[in-house]
Amino acid sequence: MDLDMISYLAKLSKLNFTEEELKKAAADMTSIIDIMDTIKEVDVVYNPLADNKNMYLKDLREDIAKDSMETEKILQNAKHSDNCFVVPKVVE
C-alpha cells in the first residue's frame, strides 16, 4: 500500500498522521492487506437474500411518540451554548 492510498484513507478516516506515522501505517497495512488478500482466491458472491431475517412490516416498531430526554442530559458530555452543541464556525 502506497503513501497516497494511506493518505487518502487517513482523510476519509479524519485522522492526522505525521510523515513518520504514515510510513509505518503503510507498512503495517501492507502486511495486513496481504492476509486479507487470501480471500481473493475464493469464488463466492454475497447473496443479501440469504441473510434475510424474515422481518415483516408488522414486526417493526409501532409509531408512538414518547417523551424525549431532557436537553440538559443530551448536552451533558458536550461543549454547549443556548441549548445547542457548539461547533466551530461552519462556512458554507
Binding site: 500500500m1 492510498m5 494511506i6 487518502y8 484513507l9 487517513a10 476519509l12 478516516s13 485522522l15 501505517a25 497495512m29 495486513i32 492487506i33 486479507m36 480471500i39 481473493k40 475464493v42 463466492v44 458472491v45 454475497y46 447473496n47 440469504a50 441473510d51
Partner: peptide
C-alpha cells in the same frame, strides 16, 4: 479504522467487504 475504510472505499468494496460478507455466508 484505516483498514475498514479501505475495505469499504470505492473501487475496493467488492474485493474486500463484499467478498468477506460472502465468506461469512
Amino acid at each position: 479504522i484505516l483498514l475498514g475504510n479501505y475495505a469499504l472505499s470505492s473501487g475496493y468494496y467488492d474485493a474486500y467487504y463484499g467478498k468477506a460478507m460472502a465468506l461469512k455466508q
